[in-house]
Design a protein around this nucleic acid. Structure first.
Lengths: 113, 113
DNA sequence: ACCCTATGCATAGATTGTCTATGGTTGTGC
DNA sequence: GCACAACCATAGACAATCTATGCATAGGGT
């Protein structure tokens, strides 16, 4: 991985889904939202964002429609589908399980079950 | 990513370094150790492990020497170098920073600074 | 009128990391 | 002697991210 990765590989889809669970949003807004809420720790490059959104569309986890922004611009708004909400739950629980596991490996004491 | 990833991409090097920080170990043992301590959540495939060890050797973060196992077998034991220990600290802190950031995005409440 | 910047979408290609598949050697227990 | 676990290692496929590039337009400043 690069020395200064913008995000943890494998977590982008989850982050997008989670962001859309708050409210429908366009791509640019999603990237901004993640950056802001993460206090600038996570940055979503456009070259990662749009391919990810295509994946999510293909899977049926989000749907898209062209609308006008409040700044009067044409933009593609993404909305979480029911399947997407379910998927989000799944990914979050898997992620947390892995985090716990990594935490155990990183921990100082090696406690065997 | 695959539906059931064996580990979080980008974390393997850190896990290996952390494991070697406990004690020098051979490849096979590293994989077993991670699997066991993580309660079988994390699995290190050989096709991931050995390339990773090559990376670490190249960076000078570990060194290797052939020895005999306690089961009387020839095996390559890896030891953490000083640079490797430093690198481990760096990776862990970066990782934890990212975890905190992801946690903020996943959290229900969106609190702006 | 003109330019600059922020807003906004999107793709191609390079790069990196992990997984699958394969192939080999050698102790030990049956 | 045969199977199996312990060990090493690589090649190629695959997936995800990053870099670089291109395009378009609204609004503010001059």
């Amino acid at each position: 991985m690069a020395k200064n990765p913008d995000l943890l590989p494998g977590t982008l889809d989850m982050l997008i889904l989670r962001t859309l669970a708050r409210a429908p949003l366009h791509g640019y807004g999603i990237a901004q939202s993640i950056k802001r809420i993460s206090d600038d720790v996570l940055t979503v490059e456009e070259g990662s964002l749009y391919p990810a959104l295509q994946r999510l569309l293909l899977q049926g986890w989000v749907k898209a429609e062209w609308k006008k922004t409040d700044t009067n611009r044409r933009a593609r708004f993404y909305t979480l589908t029911a399947a997407g909400r379910k998927q989000l739950g799944l990914e979050v629980s898997q992620f947390q399980q892995m985090m716990a596991a990594i935490g155990r490996v990183l921990a100082d004491a090696e406690e065997t079950g």
